[in-house]
């Protein structure tokens, strides 16, 4: 009887392990539900449609930034330049609000500048084989420096976050549905479709899983990587615009605090930093988990340093758990 109980226990462990490995999104949803339950217990009555709207609104930009990490991590890379690029995008748009082209011109300039930065990153990573960590770190300093130059140039014109950005970044329909979903839902569909149904998506996984095999099959990795870092930079700019609208702020370091949570959300969502494994669905849930966790820690009255320690611990534990379940043959 003892033996059969043990076997039973083992079976469940295996089942869980398999679940976490093949469909990580299911246990992640469970974790999210538990966190929501805990926050409701900690502060009864807090969970409401309005609260949900606030959580979703805060999660959207984080999920987009985490999407940048997911896509680059699938190929075995990472994108640390998203914070600088996102901040730059919001800042440039704000400074150009009084220009002849108005908001549209600001957004176009911001996205074009982001795409250029991504192109250079992609060339560095894909053609000159600079490690993505180093390349994107370097690029984030370059972008930050140029943003500061821009700041000095534009200081007299006066700036402000345009109303349209504030509307899409922070307004909600009936106090519940945030309008930033208008950007997020099409983007999400595009990424999910791209990863699952296009040749390009397949190649992202292929390069991350086994660069040698991808090469021997005829993949020219540099082409894939250049396009990848352009996509990532443009997504970072979009996230930066939404954050700028949400916080009604434009500064060259606005997005900085979201960089590491974005990496964390991707890792928690089941994307392997070693490449070849993961997806955007898990990343979205990862972003929601982090946002709810932040809210929970706030409700519990824990200070910022504690929040950071908890964040860090969760990333390490989750990454270790994934390594355990995916490494067995």
């Amino acid at each position: 009887m003892n033996a059969s109980a043990r076997a039973n226990e083992w079976l469940t462990a295996v089942t869980w392990r398999r679940l976490l490995r093949d469909r990580p999104i299911v246990p992640l949803m469970g974790l999210l539900a538990i966190l929501v339950l805990v926050i409701e217990l900690a502060d009864p009555g807090i969970v409401s449609p309005e609260w949900t709207g606030v959580i979703v609104r805060a999660s959207v930009p984080l999920a987009i930034l985490a999407g940048c990490q997911t896509l680059t991590m699938l190929t075995g890379g990472i994108d640390l330049s998203v914070a600088a690029i996102g901040s730059m995008a919001g800042f440039v748009t704000a400074t150009l609000v009084h220009s002849p082209g108005g908001v549209a011109e600001g957004i176009i300039v911001a996205l074009a500048a982001a795409a250029l930065a991504g192109l250079l990153t992609g060339i560095g990573v894909g053609v000159f084989r600079v490690h993505p960590l180093i390349m994107t770190l370097g690029m984030s300093f370059v972008v930050l420096g140029l943003s500061n130059v821009w700041q000095l140039q534009m200081v007299q014109t006066g700036a402000g976050v345009p109303d349209s950005l504030r509307w899409i970044g922070s307004s909600t329909l009936a106090q519940v549905v945030p309008y930033n979903l208008l950007v997020f839902i099409p983007l999400t569909l595009l990424i999910l479709l791209g990863l699952r149904r296009t040749g390009y998506g397949r190649l992202l996984y292929a390069i991350g899983d086994n660069p040698v095999a991808a090469r021997l099959s005829g993949t020219r990795a540099w082409q894939v990587l250049i396009v990848l870092y352009v996509i990532s930079a443009v997504m970072a700019a979009i996230a930066g615009l939404l954050i700028s609208g949400l916080t009604n702020t434009a500064s060259v370091s606005l997005v900085d605090t979201s960089l590491l949570p974005a990496v964390a959300a991707a890792v928690i969502g089941g994307t392997s930093i070693l490449g070849g494994r993961g997806g955007f669905g898990g990343t979205i849930v990862g972003a929601l988990i982090l946002t709810v966790l932040t809210a929970l820690l706030t409700v519990l009255g824990l200070p910022e340093p504690t929040r950071q320690v908890v964040f860090g611990s969760i990333i390490v534990v989750v990454a270790a758990a994934y390594t355990r379940v995916t490494s067995e043959s």
């Binding site: 149904r197 296009t198 040749g199 397949r202 190649l203 991808a214 020219r220 082409q223």
Partner: peptide
């Protein structure tokens, strides 16, 4: 299917 998707013009929908 890997070799079918490597060329740029095969990057679209499968």
């Amino acid at each position: 299917a890997l070799p079918f998707t490597t060329r740029v013009r095969r990057w679209g929908l499968i």
